[in-house]
Amino acid sequence: MKNIITIFVLLIGLVVNVSAQKYFTKTGNISFHSDTPMEKIEAVTNSATSVLDMETGKIQWAVLVKSFSFEKALMEEHFNENYMESTKFPKAKFTGSIDNAGSLNLSKDGKYNVTVTGNLEIHGVTKPVTSSAEFVVKGGKITANSGLKILVADYGIDIPSLVKDKIAKEIDIKIQATYEAMAKS
């Protein structure tokens, strides 16, 4: 009898573990900042999606460029029409993996620092990027924070000389997500 219970408990543990291998969010937060003495530009979106596969350590992000909102209407218009050409390139994507995924145990409370490497696609141009990320697991809730700096010129975005002093060459991007376990179907 005891054995049966042990097997049963083990089996349940297995099922829970297997089903909790993939995590996702549909409401990831991405913001970016451009800081120059002339102008501060800030934009934010809350509808980025991300999928995290703990079995392989693979992580994916996707965001709709048009979902970024700016304080000033004109900035939003220039961002979409002149710089990001968001009708032609509606999405920005990141596909990569967590280098030290083995050290990350999402079923146990704690703070985990990891390094994520992969490819970032913006404005139709794909570049390799590396970033450090922090995962915090607390009471079953998984939040991830990361940030990276990118060069506007790397992604084939031309800034006219007229506004050159208003837009930073290097853009600071912040990423934040609360992941949910994906239900196995």
């Binding site: 980025a48 709709l64 460029v65 048009k66 979902s67 999405k91």
Partner: peptide, 14 residues
């Protein structure tokens, strides 16, 4: 709302 495209879902903002 304003349609911003399609990821896992069709997203509308504002």
């Amino acid at each position: 709302g304003i349609c911003t495209g399609y990821l896992m879902d069709v997203v509308l903002v504002k």
